[in-house]
Write a protein that binds this DNA or RNA. Structure first.
Lengths: 296, 296
DNA sequence: TATTTTATGTAATTTTACTACCTAAATTGG
DNA sequence: CCAATTTAGGTAGTAAAATTACATAAAATA
C-alpha cells in the first residue's frame, strides 16, 4: 500500500501492472485468474493481441477478459495494454519485489538489474538541477579538488579522482580518517572539498566538511538525503534512492553517486577549452596503445 | 541507420519511438509532420487518445494519422501506442542521442542517466545465465578470492573486495601490476582469481589470468566482450555494453560491472548458512552505531 | 500548360472493444 | 438439505475504433 502509493506518484496511474496482477491474483475470480496466468506467463505476447485472442489463449470468453482488466484497475483493454507495455518497457517483466531466499540466480540478477534501473530513474527525476549547475560552476573554477569518502563512498571518491585530472584539475582522494583531517585543515580558498557520504550522518565525515569549510575551501557534498552534513556545505547534491530497503540501498546508492560523478565530470569537461579536450583524446590514444604493449 | 538496426534487434521492433520520430521528422510529409509535432509536444496525451482524437489535435484527417504511424515504422495505431508507452515508461522522453557541446547541464544529466539505464537493460538481456550460475558456484566454494583490475576496473575490484568478506570469504584486491604478478603466481587450487578488464585486451591483465591459472587457481573474468582474456578463464562473465561510443563506454562499463558484482555477492550471500547472514546483520548494526560515534 | 506523381481528405468497411442480458454455479438461510 | 439469493461466466448484439478504398487536390515534371 505504502509502497504502491509512492510509486503511483511517479507517473500518472498505478505503475507496473504485472506486479499488481501478481499480488491480486489470489483474490481474483477463477476465470479472471486464467487470464492473469496467461498474461504473467508471457506478457509480451499480449501486447500484440486483441481481446479475442487473449480470451482464446486463456480459454475464457471475451467479456471475462474485459472484466479482468477492470478487476485489476484498468479502464479497459487498450488501457491495460498500455500499462502492460510500460511495465515491459525495459526488457522482461519488471518485478521490484524483495529478494527471496528461494530465488534462483537468474531471478536475483533480474531483480537487481531492475531495481538498479528503476532507482536510477527515481534519482534522475529527483536530482536538484540548480545544485547540479552550481556544483559544475564550482568544480570548473576549482584550483584543485579533494574527494573525501569512507567505505562504499570511498569507492566513489576514488572513481572521481580517476576522472577529474583529465581536465587539468589536480585531484586527490582521501580515504583514511586521519589523513582526511590533515588534508581538510590544510585546504585554502579556491580549492574544493568534495565530500561523499550516502547516509550523511557519519560523524567523522561531517567533521571533515566543517574543517574544510573553516579552512576556506568550498565544500560540495554528495549524499543520499537531506542530512546534517548539508549544513556544512556550500552545494549539496542530494541523490535520493528509491526506498530504504536495507538489502538494496548500499548497492544503488553508490551507483547513483557514480552516475552523478559522470555527469559532473562530463559537464566540467565540456566547459573546458577545446585544447583540453584534444589532450584528453591524445591520452586516450596512448592508453589504448599501452593495452597492446607488454608491461615492463 | 546502423544504430537503428542494432537497436531494433534488442526487443522486437524498433525501440524508442520518440527518438525515431524526432530523427525522421524532417523527411516526413507536411501533414505527417503535424502529427509528429503533437506527439512530440506531449507524448503522454496520445496514450489515452484514439485515432480520431489524435487527428483532431493535429488538425489532420484520420487516415493521415494512420499513414504517419506506418511512416515511422509501426504496423498500425495500436502498435504505435504500445511503442510510445514503452518509450515513456521511465519518466520523461528518453533521448539517447549523443552528447552535444551545446547541451546544458540538465540535458547532459538526462542523457547520461538515460544512457546508463538503457545500457544496463541491454547488459541484462545479454548476460549469460549459465556463466553467472557457474561463477556463483565457484565463488561460493572458494577458499579465498583475489580481485585483479586496473584503472576503472580497479575501482570495480576494490568494490568487490569490500563486499565479499561479509560472507566469510577472505578477499584481496590487487591493483598494482607487479604485486598482481606476485600474488597470481602464489595462488593455489581452491582459490579464485577474479580478473576484471573492460576491454579484455590489456596485455598485463591477460598475463595475470594465465599465471593464476597455471598456479592452479580457478579463474573468473568480468569483461566487456568476448576477448582474448576469456581463453585463460574457467568462467567468463561478459557484460556487453550498448555500442562503443567513446564518450559513454568507460562510464557504463564500470557501472554494469558493479551491478554484476552486486548480483554475485548477493547470490553468494544467499547460499551461505543463515548463521553467516546473522553475522552480516550484526556487523551492519555495528556500522550504523559507529556513524553516530565520534571517531577516535 | 498538360501530365504524372504525390499528398491528403471523404466515406465505406472491417475489426475491435464494450454492454446488456441470460444461464449456470455457488453460497447462504431456513 | 432444499429454496432463495448472490455471484460468476457466457452469448449475442451494439457501439466505437481502426483500417481500407477511393476520389480529389496539390505539387512536381516534362
Amino acid at each position: 500500500m505504502d509502497t504502491d502509493s509512492r510509486i503511483d506518484s511517479r507517473n500518472q496511474g498505478g505503475r507496473n501492472i504485472i506486479e499488481v496482477i501478481r499480488t491480486m491474483r489470489p483474490e481474483l475470480r477463477k476465470s479472471d485468474r486464467k487470464v492473469a496466468d496467461v498474461v504473467l506467463e508471457d506478457p509480451r505476447r499480449i501486447l500484440n493481441a486483441t481481446v479475442g485472442e487473449t480470451a482464446a489463449l486463456a480459454e475464457v470468453s471475451q467479456p471475462t477478459v474485459l472484466r479482468f482488466t477492470t478487476a485489476i484497475g484498468c479502464s479497459g483493454f487498450p488501457d491495460f495494454k498500455i500499462r502492460l507495455a510500460q511495465s515491459l518497457a525495459l526488457g522482461t517483466p519488471a518485478t521490484h519485489s524483495v529478494l527471496l531466499d528461494t530465488d534462483q540466480p537468474e531471478t536475483v540478477a533480474e531483480k537487481i538489474f531492475d531495481y538498479t534501473m528503476t532507482s536510477l530513474d527515481w534519482a534522475r527525476s529527483r536530482l536538484d538541477k540548480q545544485a547540479l549547475n552550481k556544483a559544475i560552476d564550482v568544480l570548473t573554477a576549482a584550483r584543485s579538488i579533494v574527494f573525501f569518502g569512507f567505505g562504499a563512498s570511498g569507492i566513489v571518491a576514488r572513481d572521481a579522482q580517476q576522472k577529474f585530472p583529465l581536465f587539468g584539475v589536480p585531484c586527490a582522494a582521501e580515504l583514511d580518517s586521519h589523513q582526511q583531517v590533515m588534508v581538510a585543515s590544510m585546504m585554502k580558498p579556491g580549492e574544493v572539498a568534495f565530500v561523499i557520504s550516502n547516509t550523511g550522518t557519519t560523524r567523522s565525515i561531517i567533521e571533515i566538511a566543517r574543517i574544510a569549510r573553516d579552512s576556506g575551501a568550498t565544500v560540495i557534498c554528495l549524499t543520499g538525503s537531506d542530512s546534517p552534513l548539508t549544513n556544512y556545505c556550500d552545494v549539496s547534491l542530494i541523490v535520493e534512492t528509491l526506498e530504504n530497503t536495507n538489502m538494496y540501498t548500499p548497492m544503488i546508492s553508490r551507483i547513483a553517486a557514480l552516475v552523478v560523478i559522470d555527469i559532473l565530470s562530463t559537464s566540467v569537461a565540456m566547459r573546458r577549452s577545446p585544447e583540453h579536450q584534444a589532450r584528453v583524446h591524445q591520452m586516450k590514444r596512448q592508453l589504448s596503445d599501452m593495452r597492446r604493449m607488454q608491461p615492463i
